[in-house]
Simulated scan of single mutants.
Amino acid sequence: MRTFAELDAALVECRACPRLVAWRESVAGTKAAFAGQRYWARPVPGFGAEDAALAVVGLAPSAHGANRTGRMFTGDPSGDFLFRVLFDVGLASQPTSTAIGDGLELRGTRLVSPVRCAPPDNRPTPVERNTCRHWLAEELELLRPTLRAVVVLGAFGWQALLPVLSAAGWPVPAPRPAFAHGAVVKFGDLAVFGCYHVSPRNVQTGRVTHPMVAAVFTAAATAAGLI
């Protein structure tokens, strides 16, 4: 089994999905607010504790967030919302995440995603999701000795995660449990929590609020033994 460092070194060189490679590179620098900045424009590794008891599964890097900064949920509105929640729950050292080297640390928590490259319109295809699946599987296998809970942000992440857990030997029943905000499913010693994605659209429409997301993370952190 590779170490986290070895996994990340292989991941950032991946060019398996031509559409995603083209998009992540061509979108760099096209937003006026970030004109002149050097973009990461590569697959984005997981971020956080290598002995995490809690994993957070998102969707994919955003074009001008993690695709720009090179760190999960960093530099965009979704990340701004998420890290305020993590800080309030006691899982992050600060409520902001702006760039690699900003001092941010996660406590017992690791951020991962089923798709590691920014997709057009934030919509990876099923083929891209499946092609990328082995990176998530390997990262979760590295976390397995300590992993006790997972928060899944959105139905896409839920649909991507359950086959990975099943293939890795966690007892996922058939038919697979459906995604819902606030859902809690136990797969052996692993508790999986459903949470609406903290996307700007969900936040702006009121579908997602800070208290409702904080409630999910508080329950998940409790299940993971972090609080």
Rank of each mutant, 00 (worst) to 15 (best):
A41L: 08
Y196M: 08
F187P: 00
L161V: 11
T146Y: 07
G48F: 03
Q94D: 02
F4L: 06
D80C: 11
T109C: 08
Q159P: 01
A155M: 09
D51R: 13
G46Q: 10
A178D: 15
W170A: 03
F87L: 01
V152M: 06
I100K: 06
G48C: 05
V85R: 00
L20H: 13
A178V: 07
M212E: 09
P173G: 08
C132V: 01
Q37W: 04
H134E: 11
S26V: 13
F187T: 08
G108C: 07
V213D: 04
V172C: 07
V216L: 10
G70E: 11
V198L: 09
G36T: 11
P200H: 06
A219P: 02
Y196I: 01
A60D: 05
P95Y: 00
R116W: 04
A5K: 15
D51E: 15
S113R: 03
R144F: 04
E13N: 10
A53L: 05
P177W: 01
A118P: 05
T3P: 11
G101Y: 04
A118M: 02
F81C: 05
A35L: 09
R116C: 13
S113W: 01
S93R: 00
K31E: 15
P171C: 15
A5C: 08
V184R: 01
L165C: 12
G169W: 13
E13M: 12
Y196R: 04
R201Y: 12
F193N: 03
A155R: 05
V213W: 03
S26E: 15
F187L: 10
A118Y: 01
F87I: 00
E6W: 09
R123D: 12
Q204M: 08
P163R: 00
E139P: 14
V208S: 05
A9E: 08
L226F: 12
P200W: 04
G90T: 14
P126L: 09
F73L: 14
F34H: 12
L54W: 04
G101D: 03
W23M: 03
R201P: 15
R42A: 12
R144W: 09
A49F: 05
R144S: 14
P171R: 07
H210Y: 14
P120Q: 05
P200N: 09
A167I: 13
A118E: 00
A99V: 06
V112T: 12
G79F: 03
A63W: 06
F156M: 13
N67P: 05
V185S: 07
Q204L: 15
G79C: 04
A41H: 07
L226G: 03
F47R: 01
L7T: 02
A60F: 10
P43E: 10
T3Q: 14
F156T: 03
S166V: 07
L11I: 11
K31N: 06
V203Y: 11
F87C: 01
W170S: 05
R15Y: 07
L111T: 02
S166I: 01
V192R: 00
G157L: 11
L136Y: 02
A220I: 02
T222L: 13
T218P: 06
P18S: 12
G169K: 08
W170M: 07
S113M: 14
R129S: 12
D88H: 11
P200G: 08
G206K: 13
D88L: 10
T218Y: 07
W158Q: 04
G29K: 07
E13Q: 15
M72K: 10
G46K: 08
T109L: 06
L91P: 01
L111R: 00
Q159F: 05
A215L: 05
A49M: 12
F83D: 00
T3F: 14
A191V: 11
T146M: 03
